[in-house]
Amino acid sequence: MNDLLQIDRDVSAKLRSMKIGVQGSFYPAPPDMPKEDITEWQIRRLAALGCTAHQIGFGVLPDDEGKLLAIKALADSLGVELELTAPGAFGVSGPYADAEARQRFLKAVGQARLLGVPVVRTGYGRLNVSTSRFNRSMNVREHLDSLVPALREAGHIAADAGVGLAVENHCDFTGREMGYLLDQTDLANVGAALDTANGFTVFCDPQDDIEALAPYAFTTHMKDMAVVDMPVRGYIPMTAQGCGLGEGHVDLSRAIDLLARHSPRADGLHLLIEPGWMAWDPNRDQWEQEYEYFAQGIRYLQALLDEKANGSEERP
């Protein structure tokens, strides 16, 4: 009984340590704002909403080292831990080697080192069939094996910079297939960036992805989607579309349970809110709806974490 009580206390501590944030690429900044000012604006605004993590949007970081250090100082002063996307990981070597992709990856990892980012995230799938399990030119296992050399080298590059590398299930493979890729890569600093709803895009139950990838998860995208009737005849009769957290068919409560118990980086794990493929109300301002979506998501996750942490502590 004492051992079980200690386990519950450990889980409660991990739940309380988790950091809530957003995927910055989807958080709208004023249209006249210079690109290099967006990150600082987002950090301030989201910290005021209670966020303690932030994924910097793609392509908005300045090249100037002094400005990068200023962003780091601001985030540190507000208690916000940063996360960064490192595109090009699967082009650093191997059969898909690409010099420009390698340079993009090296640049992002260098920026992550300056910013003190603990984990950079990457992805293979580029939202098309050819970079997915449905590429008919090779079977799934061959496809996964072909990615190992690049991911392994990218992992070594990230390790040299002192950061972890997390691979998102990015509309390409199922969670169990991604687990196979990570096992074959076999590097301690390479794990998963679990997206809780992307399983829908490869016709996989997201709950299965969550169970498969929680033991590898270095970071997350907390996303919910609802299965709805397809209004257009001639298509598959049901489809999934984005919705507010807790309003769809992804069991986010169960996801947090599994992450707290099995993630190798459960302490301080980033729970980053990202919208799915949303159907915004055409009769309302879209930006207003997007701001509401994120604010409600932050409140939802904080309430869920509080409820679970208190429940773990109170369990006899």
Rank of each mutant, 00 (worst) to 15 (best):
I210D: 00
A154G: 09
S93V: 10
K107M: 03
D160R: 15
M278L: 10
V129S: 01
A158S: 10
D145H: 06
K14I: 08
A75C: 12
K72E: 08
V232M: 00
T201Q: 07
G268S: 00
P95C: 05
A188C: 12
R45E: 04
L187W: 09
A240M: 03
L151I: 07
G66T: 15
D172L: 00
V119N: 03
D32H: 01
D209Q: 10
H221I: 07
D64A: 01
E290M: 12
R9M: 10
D76L: 01
H221D: 04
Y96Q: 02
D160T: 15
A197G: 08
A89Q: 08
D76M: 11
M225F: 02
A266D: 04
T185P: 02
E247R: 12
L114S: 05
G155S: 08
D63G: 15
M230H: 04
L147G: 00
R136Q: 06
R9G: 14
Q42P: 01
S312T: 00
L305I: 04
T85F: 06
D63K: 03
A192E: 02
G311A: 06
R265E: 01
Y300M: 08
I157T: 03
D145S: 08
A99I: 02
Y235W: 02
G311S: 09
D64C: 02
P149A: 09
L272I: 15
A70T: 02
A295R: 10
L165Y: 10
V117E: 14
G125L: 04
A266T: 04
C204I: 00
A73R: 06
T52C: 12
V120P: 01
S25V: 08
S137I: 07
P206E: 13
D205Q: 10
N169S: 04
D63H: 15
T220M: 04
F173A: 13
G91C: 04
A112T: 14
N189V: 02
P237E: 13
L74Y: 08
A101Q: 10
A29P: 05
N139T: 05
K14H: 11
D3L: 08
I157N: 01
E81D: 00
A214K: 13
Q184P: 07
L78R: 15
E274Q: 14
D32S: 12
L147I: 08
G79I: 14
R176P: 03
P237T: 14
E211S: 11
R126Q: 01
Y216C: 00
D10Y: 11
L151A: 07
D209S: 00
Q241L: 11
V227Y: 05
R141C: 09
R102A: 03
A159T: 13
D267G: 10
